[in-house]
């Protein structure tokens, strides 16, 4: 019988394929569980698109409808958040982020699979890249005028130093909070499922009466699983929306 010692065991990574090379150190290219699941996500997204295009005929297959609805939702979100003339240039980035996080979250909800977006280092570095990239975009576009982002319109003069400190702190905190929001949601959800599942297993194992009574908590856990599916979709939407709004801040300055 297989015991899980800590609920955090499900986030452990193992090396599946190892590069042993004499002269160069190629251990960066090792295929770990993480790499395997990245490849699976890529395969799922590519095969969804291949199924949709229907051998390059004009009319797509039945898969067309859901993919087109996702595309339309993200298009409208980007248009609403960024707006102006430049929103179309940033749409591919936001659609890619949304699709990747959505598929990774949904795959991680298959039992005994691996949660890509619960790896804190990965998601935090992703959000740092987005934050730094949008900051460089703003500096390139506006020069020193970019710092007017830290002073809201119509601030009384004595309040300006205080507000600049608060606004710049909140601007720096965005880099953490964007990634931490996604990864904490997924981490907390998966931990909750493991802990509740372990409790239910202990309860069912007592005797035959509790085996039958266990249906009630089992239904509750099923409801929580449905909530986890909703959270997986909502968090990917929120990540895409907030990325769009950060890019908008550096493109148009308020």
């Amino acid at each position: 019988m297989y015991y899980i010692n800590s609920p955090l065991d499900q986030f452990e990574m193992n090396t599946l394929l190892k590069f042993v090379t004499p002269f160069f150190d190629m251990s960066n290219l090792n295929i770990t569980t993480f790499g395997l699941y990245i490849i699976i996500v890529l395969m799922v997204i590519v095969s969804l698109n291949i199924l949709t295009t229907n051998n390059n005929t004009i009319i797509g297959s039945r898969w067309n409808l859901p993919l087109e609805m996702i595309y339309d939702t993200i298009l409208n979100t980007t248009k609403g958040q960024i707006g102006g003339k430049l929103w179309g240039l940033y749409f591919p980035l936001i659609y890619t982020l949304f699709m990747f996080i959505l598929i990774a979250n949904l795959i991680s909800l298959i039992p005994y699979s691996f949660a890509l977006t619960a790896q804190i280092v990965f998601v935090i570095s992703l959000s740092f890249i987005i934050w730094l990239g949008s900051t460089i975009t703003g500096f390139n576009k506006h020069g020193w005028l970019f710092f007017s982002l830290f002073v809201p319109n119509g601030t009384p003069t004595p309040l300006v130093p205080l507000l600049v400190i608060i606004e710049s702190l909140s601007y720096i905190a965005r880099a953490f909070s964007l990634g931490l929001r996604l990864t904490c949601n997924i981490l907390a959800g998966h931990l909750l499922m493991v802990i509740l599942g372990g409790l239910l297993l202990n309860f069912i194992n007592i005797n035959k009466l509790t085996l039958i009574l266990g249906i009630i908590p089992f239904a509750m856990i099923l409801a929580i699983l449905c909530l986890e599916f909703a959270i997986a979709m909502i968090q990917s939407y929120v990540f895409a929306t907030l990325t769009a709004s950060y890019i908008k801040d550096s493109l148009y300055l308020h």
Binding site: L89, Y90, P92, L93, S125, F128, I129, I130, L132, G133, S134, T135, I136, T137, N140
Partner: peptide
């Protein structure tokens, strides 16, 4: 004909830096 490098170069630079 989407301009990839012209629009996304800040993100590539920040990707290398953060890595």
């Amino acid at each position: 004909s989407t301009p990839v490098l012209k629009v996304y170069w800040p993100f590539f630079i920040s990707g290398v830096g953060i890595y």
